[in-house]
Design a protein around this nucleic acid. Sequence first.
DNA 1: ATACAATTGGTCAAAATTAGTCAAATGCTG
DNA 2: CAGCATTTGACTAATTTTGACCAATTGTAT
Lengths: 155, 155
Amino acid sequence: MEEKSISDIIEKYLKQILDKSSQIEIRRSELADHFDVVPSQINYVIKTRFTIQHGYLVQSKRGGGGYIRIERVNLLDDVDMLDSLIQAIGDSVSERDAIDIIQTLYDEKVLTRREGDLILAALSKQALNVNDCKLEAQLRARILISIVNRLRYES
Amino acid sequence: MEEKSISDIIEKYLKQILDKSSQIEIRRSELADHFDVVPSQINYVIKTRFTIQHGYLVQSKRGGGGYIRIERVNLLDDVDMLDSLIQAIGDSVSERDAIDIIQTLYDEKVLTRREGDLILAALSKQALNVNDCKLEAQLRARILISIVNRLRYES
DNA sequence: ATACAATTGGTCAAAATTAGTCAAATGCTG
DNA sequence: CAGCATTTGACTAATTTTGACCAATTGTAT
């Protein structure tokens, strides 16, 4: 469907493993060799596709015996999940981050598909276009926090 | 129905595929090469012939592995009602008006109670507070229109 | 212990690869 | 001819890919 770039392929590979084991440890250069890319591309994949907004936690260690560990975290297990989410949102959110956050909330069954779609319509670049990228991202953060806070009152 | 322009031919080509597969992914430059036109003509064809009013949803991605995806979606029955609602919204909406509009959509069973609540959280004075009442009302109108437009179809 | 070499991973920015925008030029139709 | 649609291309924006340089950790020789 959408594995056009090598980054997409690496992402899919890692997520397939993470579907089963909740945590994996890789050797950066090994994985890079396996897909015939430079090592720093692994960092790129992780930075763009395994953020906390996506529901993943990443730890690493350098030097001999170094590794990169990716862990799938279940936000729902966290009693103050909404709090930590608001924490993660901060005071500025790009549209891409918003998509990731809504996707995670959907994955966690906090939102229905339709609710997520409607929220994304509200957070879209088009809707918030205000000729000031900074203000736009701040608005998006405030709206998102307002919605997340509204989620506290039911369900 | 003779296709006079190359745009018509490209449109027909794409719609023939979409008659069978409900979704296609193209590479802009490839398609442009195939019909021997400049890449931006593909954008023209899409913008004039594959709008949401026509029942198509378009998504795209730039950069390596980029694509343009066109999806045929099911338009809902009460599209006319949404049109007149958008007319009524205009380019500025107070929070009070927003509440009324959401209430109407709820009464018409276009929105669930929860969806309405979440939308109102997004449209609240608090969320949109931007120290400029006029801008705030304009933003509220744009967000509301974006949401209403999203209601035109189901994915 | 200390120094140095070896082994990992991290950062950052340039280059490459797509797509988007906009307006001028051109063509077509009433 | 006037007005609208189409075609074109220069400029812009987003995303990925690559590589040079940096930082941390471990192993080893003195």
